[in-house]
Each structure stands twice: as C-alpha cells, then as structure tokens.
C-alpha cells in the first residue's frame, strides 16, 4: 500500500506541479494522435490541401487579380496559410474538450489532487507541439513549391514563434468553446465558423481586394496581424503597409494573442469550476 505524501503547498512547488501536470495531460493528447494515426493524418491534410488548392488551383487566378505572377502570389500566400492552419486547429481542440466533458475524464481529473489549470493547459501545450509539426510540414512543402524566407534564420524563428503564439491563443478559444458547447456533435456543427475567421483576413486574398465593408473586420482579424508580421519577418511580398494595423503588425501580432489568452483562460477556468454547478 502506497503512502500518501503530503504535498507542500508553497508557491514554488505549486508552479512546479502545475508544469508537471500540464506535461502529463499534454502527453495524453499526443498519445491520442499516435494511437489514432488516421486522425493525425486528417489534421495534417488541411495545410497540405490548402497549399495545393490555393497555391495552384486558385493561385494563377489570384495572381492575375493582384497583377503579379502566380509564383509571386505564392510568396504572399504561404505565410497566410501558416496562420490559417493555426486557426483550423480550433476545431479539433473544441471537439476534444467537448468529448472529455461528455466522457467524464474531466470530472475524474477534477477529483484528483492535481493542478486545476493543468487540466486545460495540457491541451494547449499539446496543440502547440502539434503546431510545430504542422509548421515543419508546411515549411518543407513551401520550400518544395519555391517559397522561401529571405531574411535569415532569426526572422524564421521569430515568425514561427508568432505563429505558435497565435495557435496557443486559438487553443484557449477552442478550450473555452469546448466547455461551453452541449457536446462534440455541436462542436462539429459549429466548425464552419472557422472559415470566416481564417479567410476574412489578410491570409489568402489581400484585404485591398476585398469590398470595403469586409476589409475592416479582415484588417482587425487577429490572423491578419500575425500574417503581415510573418510576411515581414520572412521577407515575403506584401503590399505597402497602408493601414494602421499593417503599420503596427508586429506589435499587434503579440498583443492580439496575449489579449485572447487573457480573456479566454480565466473564462475557461471559471467554466471548468462551474461544470459541476
């Protein structure tokens, strides 16, 4: 019979335990992907298909509309697709959290002496690790299609950092939604809502080609800041920064995700506590 060790409740040990618990929960989600390789493949297919469809099927036409060759449009496009892929991750996060609420695993975790925030933060960490895998694939694919970063490794690392930060923010959005929806089926039905988030932004079509009323939300879409900032960091084609957001893209690419996390994390924690009512 194992004895119960009293966990000293100092501030430092609490943070250490929260980190350990977060990693254990993250590992669970990563094991899911390993045990269900078809699902992992499905997840990775989204960015691959996006590159293929937008880069080549629509690419030439968009190039014409922008008055540039298709190859130059692809220069413009790939940073957009990186961010778009981060946004599409929301769907999986929401569904998986909703499944955990339904299946009782969240309840079980709530009855354990573990760190409450780790119950949810583990999912966010797993999402960020998955984002690294997705981005690596996208970078490789992009390079294969002639896309490249022009400003050296530092720029690439900074850009990837911004993308992963964005994914972390979207992960918390997905976690909150997963705790709010009535079940995984509902989460799947709402999935279409990701499209405007991912596309009414400076991702696939430059905002100056959009009708005026659409350009404004597109410009203030958190994705746009990240996309513009990463285009700058990669040294990829971008129109002249004529808008306020465009001029402050780098700052906004940090502020937006931080603000999203600052709102969604506490709301998700409050919701988790209230799950038992």
């Amino acid at each position: 019979m194992s004895t119960l060790t009293e966990v000293a409740d100092t501030h430092g040990s609490r943070i250490t335990w929260a980190a350990v618990d977060t990693w254990v929960v993250a590992k669970r989600h990563l094991l899911h992907l390993v045990r269900r390789p078809d699902e992992l493949l499905g997840t990775l297919m989204i960015p691959v298909m996006a590159v293929a469809m937008f880069g080549f099927v629509f690419g030439e036409a968009f190039g014409v509309a922008m008055d540039v060759p298709g190859s130059e449009y692809r220069e413009f496009l790939l940073p957009g697709l990186f961010a778009l892929t981060m946004a599409f991750g929301i769907g999986n996060t929401t569904i998986s959290v909703a499944e955990d609420v339904r299946g009782g695993v969240l309840d079980r975790m709530r009855s354990l002496p573990m760190s409450p925030v780790a119950v949810l933060a583990g999912r966010a960490l797993a999402d960020m690790i998955l984002a690294v895998v997705e981005l690596s694939i996208l970078l490789a694919l992009g390079t294969l299609f002639g896309w490249q970063a022009h400003l050296g490794l530092g720029g690439v690392i900074a850009a990837l950092g911004l993308l992963i930060l964005l994914r972390m923010a979207f992960s918390w959005v997905g976690i909150l939604l997963g705790l709010l929806v009535s079940g995984p089926e509902a989460a799947m039905k709402y999935f279409a809502l990701v499209f405007p988030l991912a596309m009414v932004a400076d991702t696939i079509v430059p905002t100056d080609l959009m009708p005026g009323w659409l350009a404004i939300p597109a410009e203030w879409n958190p994705l746009s800041s990240t996309v513009i900032a990463t285009r700058e960091l990669f040294g990829n084609t971008a129109g002249p920064a004529t808008t306020w957001v465009g001029e402050h893209a780098l700052t906004m690419a940090v502020l937006w995700p931080v603000a999203i996390i600052a709102v969604c994390l506490p709301l998700a924690m409050a919701r988790l506590r209230r799950l038992g009512r």
Binding site: T5, V7, W17, V20, D21, V24, V25, K27, R28, L31, H32, R35, R36, G103, G104, V105, D107, R108, M109, L112, P113, M114
Partner: peptide, 22 residues
C-alpha cells in the same frame, strides 16, 4: 459511468492518472 480515456490503453490510463496523483 466509467471515466477513463477511451483511446489510451488500460496501462496508459493507469500510468497517466498515477502521475496526476503525483
């Protein structure tokens, strides 16, 4: 209702929860 992870194996479930029991 059994609150265990459906995707993981029985052993993985036990090891995960044991880790969460510190």
């Amino acid at each position: 209702y059994a609150a265990v992870d459906e995707v993981l194996s029985g052993r993985q479930n036990l090891e995960m929860f044991a880790r969460l029991y510190r």
